[in-house]
Design a binder for these strands. Structure first.
Lengths: 100, 100
DNA sequence: CCTTCTTGCTACATATTATGTAGCGACACA
DNA sequence: TGTGTCGCTACATAATATGTAGCAAGAAGG
């Protein structure tokens, strides 16, 4: 496949989080486990192809796991989710443009 | 263009940060301003087409600005960069897979 | 004026990635 | 034997990124 892997952890992390839908998936799993299909609905009906690719990636990297109730963040990822909560807080005071 | 804009701030933010190279760009600008070309080099020679698109996006959203010394994060974005630093800290204790 | 830098950025053909829709195989309940 | 769910796959089409070349503008020197 000839894919190069980032050397420093932060680079590897940014590589993963920077992929489309990844941040969103982690965000949607923040509260309760979701089934594959429920997760699709939360993510604007993302195509199952990509959702599966992302979930595989997140599972390989120990961020998400599939339990009885559906997909859920691992213990490790829950700390990461806490950081996303800070993003949420920050975004509330963020001065967005009012739509071109 | 028919692009839909996310309603809640966090969604809008995740939409932006979830685009390829965006997290990386913000990360690379954390210390000192960088010129367009210097930024390209830092980002593994990302194609100028995409770099320009992302910089335009970040500028429209008040996250990055072009000063005399090059591109730099806005005051607002510097807080966001602080959150990325937490990601960096977290990544150090993150248990990555040892390469397939 | 004429080079020779560097700057931000654009053009465009090619390659990679995502979307949308249909549906499979397994399991549960009736 | 239906009817429902589940995770997930196939595949054609559309959207996005890559890689390379190069333009126009500004500064510095001769």
């Amino acid at each position: 496949m000839s894919e190069k892997k980032a050397q420093r952890p932060i680079m590897a992390l940014l590589d993963i989080l920077g992929q489309r839908w990844v941040l969103r998936i982690i965000w949607e799993l923040r509260d309760a486990p979701l089934t594959f299909r429920a997760l699709r609905e939360r993510c604007d009906q993302i195509s199952p192809t990509v959702l599966n690719q992302r979930l595989a990636l997140l599972r390989e990297n120990g961020l998400v796991e599939l339990g009885d109730a559906g997909y859920q963040p691992t213990q490790s990822c829950r700390e990461l989710g806490g950081i996303l909560m800070q993003l949420s807080d920050w975004s509330k005071s963020w001065d967005q443009p009012s739509g071109s």
